[in-house]
Amino acid sequence: MNFVEALSWVNIRFLLDGLLVTVEVAVLSIIFSFIIGSLLGLVRYLKIPAVSKLVGLLIDLIRNLPLLLIIFFTYFALPQIGIRLDIFWSAIAAMTIFESAMLSEIIRAGLNSIPKGQTEAGLSTGLTYSQTLMHLIIPQAFKAMVPPILSQFISLIKDTSLAVIISLPEITHNAKIIYGQNTDYVIPMFVAMALLYFSICFALSRVVKRLKLGVQI
């Protein structure tokens, strides 16, 4: 166990390169999954005949699958049907598929938490259903949805480490390469990884805590 040599500038820079990839995958996955998850959650909330039930079945299927299996699917199975993605985009596709399903349920639950009387009140003032939804229901529901959505994003950041299985050059992958060259570096690398993940996730968790307090107030 040699912390001085293990945490040399060359190794630290290699870990930071991995951190950059982790952040890139997480940010893009967050953006895509939020857009798709919002649409899916809205479709389920609106209870569109046949469509909502079909979407619900698909979401339940994805939510009950391991993320690791979805990563394998995007990288190894999609090429079998003619869809070829590199490691980076395979990881993003897998994260987006999984997180979209999770976020859709958060969004649906948030919309359902608003009393039906709010919709009736909006309609009684002359607003259309879509106007009531956009200007009355969604803004109220969004306040309640923000903390769990951010909590899900924190989980997504940690889940990026699973992409090491397809050799995505993120933090865990790069640390594995470093301690693979010298077994004395195993503990220092695990400590470095823990600190990097902790610093990102703890900062976001503080944001979530503040938002929860704001919602309660």
Results as ranks from 00 to 15, higher is better:
residue 150 L to H: 02
residue 53 K to C: 06
residue 65 L to Q: 05
residue 72 F to T: 06
residue 31 I to H: 05
residue 79 P to Y: 10
residue 183 T to D: 09
residue 213 L to K: 06
residue 47 K to N: 13
residue 8 S to F: 02
residue 76 F to V: 05
residue 37 G to C: 14
residue 28 L to Y: 13
residue 67 L to I: 00
residue 86 D to S: 00
residue 173 H to I: 13
residue 61 L to D: 00
residue 201 C to I: 04
residue 96 T to A: 03
residue 66 P to W: 11
residue 73 F to M: 12
residue 8 S to G: 15
residue 33 S to E: 02
residue 8 S to D: 09
residue 106 I to N: 05
residue 129 Y to C: 09
residue 148 P to C: 00
residue 65 L to H: 01
residue 48 I to V: 10
residue 187 I to G: 01
residue 199 S to P: 01
residue 153 F to N: 10
residue 211 L to K: 07
residue 197 Y to D: 01
residue 2 N to V: 13
residue 38 S to K: 05
residue 211 L to Q: 06
residue 180 G to C: 04
residue 183 T to H: 02
residue 191 V to P: 04
residue 38 S to H: 09
residue 190 F to P: 03
residue 32 F to A: 06
residue 146 V to N: 02
residue 11 N to W: 07
residue 12 I to K: 08
residue 92 I to N: 00
residue 120 E to F: 00
residue 4 V to L: 15
residue 47 K to E: 14
residue 157 I to K: 01
residue 170 E to Y: 08
residue 58 L to R: 05
residue 141 A to N: 01
residue 205 S to T: 07
residue 91 A to C: 08
residue 207 V to L: 02
residue 148 P to R: 03
residue 179 Y to M: 12
residue 45 Y to E: 01
residue 90 S to R: 11
residue 163 A to H: 03
residue 130 S to K: 08
residue 148 P to D: 08
residue 32 F to W: 03
residue 22 T to F: 09
residue 204 L to C: 00
residue 59 I to R: 06
residue 115 P to N: 12
residue 126 G to Y: 02
residue 28 L to G: 06
residue 131 Q to Y: 08
residue 66 P to Q: 08
residue 28 L to W: 12
residue 80 Q to N: 11
residue 60 D to R: 08
residue 82 G to R: 05
residue 46 L to P: 04
residue 31 I to C: 04
residue 72 F to D: 05
residue 61 L to V: 08
residue 186 V to R: 01
residue 148 P to T: 08
residue 147 P to M: 07
residue 133 L to V: 03
residue 217 I to C: 07
residue 93 A to T: 10
residue 80 Q to V: 06
residue 217 I to E: 11
residue 124 S to D: 14
residue 52 S to H: 08
residue 25 V to P: 15
residue 27 V to C: 14
residue 181 Q to I: 05
residue 176 K to E: 06
residue 53 K to I: 10
residue 60 D to A: 08
residue 129 Y to D: 07
residue 119 T to W: 13
residue 97 I to Q: 02
residue 68 L to I: 14
residue 176 K to Y: 04
residue 117 G to S: 00
residue 153 F to C: 11
residue 58 L to I: 09
residue 131 Q to K: 04
residue 186 V to T: 15
residue 77 A to N: 07
residue 28 L to T: 10
residue 184 D to H: 12
residue 43 V to G: 03
residue 178 I to Q: 12
residue 181 Q to L: 10
residue 129 Y to I: 10
residue 139 P to R: 07
residue 13 R to F: 10
residue 69 L to W: 01
residue 98 F to G: 03
residue 20 L to A: 11
residue 86 D to K: 01
residue 13 R to M: 11
residue 37 G to K: 13
residue 21 V to S: 05
residue 55 V to S: 03
residue 26 A to Q: 14
residue 180 G to Q: 00
residue 130 S to W: 12
residue 146 V to C: 05
residue 183 T to F: 13
residue 102 M to P: 07
residue 78 L to H: 09
residue 62 I to V: 12
residue 42 L to K: 07
residue 184 D to T: 12
residue 215 V to P: 00
residue 7 L to K: 02
residue 77 A to L: 00
residue 27 V to P: 10
residue 41 G to L: 10
residue 119 T to I: 01
residue 198 F to D: 09
residue 205 S to E: 07
residue 139 P to N: 06
residue 82 G to Y: 06
residue 24 E to G: 13
residue 156 L to I: 05
residue 63 R to H: 09
residue 130 S to T: 14
residue 73 F to N: 03
residue 176 K to P: 03
residue 98 F to E: 00
residue 121 A to E: 10
residue 171 I to W: 13
